[in-house]
């Protein structure tokens, strides 16, 4: 929670929901290869991006995440053959709908990172962290907004 932190100290809190077979392995590779990336992501591992209920993303935003990153295998490389293709449709609709109601587009980001792309994983995390940092703390759909600190 960002409670009790001044804006200066604020660090984006990002939930990354990643698939077991590609992006999680990619993150692992990034770690093994000692590639530096910002520590702002909290990784949640799921079997496949197709398994992600869009509610996970909304719940993360509601419970205090400043951004949500979803990443899976590249299209055509899904461990379960087509899970990521089904997911792509769900996310396309979700992202479009969220921006329609006025939630910033960069709060929810979707990408593909394969098991061999440790450097790309680090690059994605850097990109997401910067994008969310630019937006500032999340204020929409959030359950408990940080309490303003008395001066």
């Amino acid at each position: 929670m960002t409670e009790g932190q001044s804006a200066k100290e604020w660090e984006p809190k990002i939930v990354a929901i990643v698939c077991n077979w590609c992006t999680y392995a990619g993150a692992d590779l990034a770690g093994i290869s000692r590639i530096q990336y910002p520590p702002n992501v909290r990784i949640v591992r799921v079997p496949c991006t197709g398994r992600i209920n869009p509610f996970y993303i909304l719940k993360a935003l509601q419970e205090g995440a400043d951004g949500v990153l979803v990443s899976g295998c590249h299209p055509g490389e899904c461990h379960y053959l087509t899970g990521n293709l089904a997911a792509r449709r769900k996310f396309a609709a979700l992202k479009s709908f969220l921006s329609y109601i006025g939630v910033e587009g960069d709060r929810t980001l979707f990408t593909w990172v394969s098991a061999s792309e440790g450097d790309r994983f680090a690059q994605v995390v850097r990109g997401v962290t910067e994008a969310v940092r630019k937006l500032g703390p999340a204020k929409k759909l959030v359950k408990k907004l940080p309490v303003a600190q008395p001066a």
Binding site: R88, R89, A92
Partner: peptide
């Protein structure tokens, strides 16, 4: 139903791709 199916050619402009290139 559209979310019960997919096409390989579905649009994916929304995919985040920092630094371009990628796969």
């Amino acid at each position: 139903a559209p979310l019960g199916t997919y096409k390989e050619t579905d649009k994916e402009e929304f995919i985040f791709n920092p630094g371009g290139g990628g796969h």
